[in-house]
Design a binder for these strands. Structure first.
Lengths: 218, 218
DNA sequence: TAGATTGTTAATCGATTAACAATC
DNA sequence: TAGATTGTTAATCGATTAACAATC
């Protein structure tokens, strides 16, 4: 039962879809093929994923949505929640803070950091912003376990190192640069250039509507 | 020679790394294992990817970086360039516009759209912003082929449809919602929740430094 | 029961890795 | 030549899909 990045991403998607799921009648169950069609994959895969979760459905009655959501939460969420710090409170940082407000109770962005004097010592949507000099100190004090980098390329490595010194275990990096960090720190990179280039390529190549369903999951 | 999403993402990453690559002496070549180590994969895979590009290196001399960049450009870029429109000019939209400024000459965000009166009829980093009512008209007029959605969930579907009516062929969607569009439109979704949840999960699970190198490519 | 969906195994598919002759 | 890297094939690995008995 290996849970890899792709599996986690599917679980996250399933949860989102289940929370949005509005059945016609007031039934609170969902069939594997229904969720599969929402998620864009096959019913067999949905069933296999649920087996991994350890949640068994009822034959010919499907799965109870609220129990599925609980099962997914048991895997994805930590019981006591995880605190997140964000470094870089420009437009992107503000957008991320706003995006996560009240969205996932177990993942809270508790503080931001920046170097620009006019961005420090204020709050963004209730999230206090401190000077980047204090990253290590405050991350350790608050027992923050995750970091988000929404900084220019040149500042990202130093910020990442400060986060790790403070005790952060995982980093989401929006800057298009590979970070050099200890191997036990999980880094997930998101390069918007790659993202848009992928769209651009397939938008061009797929020009002919002779479409052969390639994998376009997240 | 099937080029799928993952392959395109690797090409994009290679290009970024090659453009940053600063060899010690003034040699302008790179070995497969050097690029592999930068990109975090194996030398064999790098060589295989280059074969797909149709660029052959020199035995025991490696690959010329500038010719590699050209070969990648021949696949990823369209000769005449592709125009992009962005819908939603809040913090995220502004960040994306700023991010792409001068980054990829063949991908230009030529205009933005919004509905809020105070965001319309101004420019952001030289990019003019119009009212969302005019999406279809202006996208068709300017022959824009790509769209970026940086909008709240509830507004995204309508905006996507307007873009498609205007002639857009591919959409990068930042809102956590599945769009219902004709199958010949390529949609790439980016859900920040999924992204952060993935980091959170592996940061937790990997707690013990008994690390078994899982796949963490973009 | 008949119909439908589930859990689970077997078959398929594709991507990655390993290996090695060819080349400079 | 010896050393190193390339192009390319074969072997491995893992994930996805197909299939079907079991169950309600």
């Amino acid at each position: 039962m290996k849970i890899n990045v792709k599996t986690v991403q599917r679980f996250s998607l399933y949860r989102r879809l289940l929370l949005e799921f509005q059945p016609e009648e007031d039934r609170e169950r969902i069939f594997s093929y229904e969720l599969a069609s929402l998620a864009g994959n096959t019913a067999a895969q949905v069933r296999r994923d649920f087996m991994v979760l350890g949640y068994t459905g009822c034959t010919s009655k499907g799965y109870e949505t609220h129990r599925l959501v609980e099962s997914i939460a048991a895997v994805l969420d930590s019981e006591e929640g995880q605190k997140v710090a964000i470094v870089g409170t420009g437009h992107l940082g503000k957008a991320v803070i706003d995006f996560f407000r009240d969205r996932r109770p177990k993942l809270t962005i508790v503080m931001g950091f920046d170097v620009k004097p006019d961005r420090v010592d204020c709050t963004i949507h209730g999230c206090p912003v401190f000077h980047a000099d204090r990253i290590e100190e405050l991350v350790r004090e608050e027992e923050i376990s995750l970091g988000i980098l929404t900084l220019p390329v040149e500042a990202s490595q130093a910020a990442a190192e400060a986060l790790v010194r403070g005790g952060v275990r995982g980093i989401a990096n929006f800057a298009p640069v590979r970070l050099h960090l200890p191997p036990d720190i999980h880094v997930e990179e998101l390069d918007m250039t790659t993202y848009l280039e992928t769209v651009a390529y397939f938008a061009r190549v797929r020009e002919a509507p002779s479409d052969d369903a390639d994998d376009l999951l997240l």
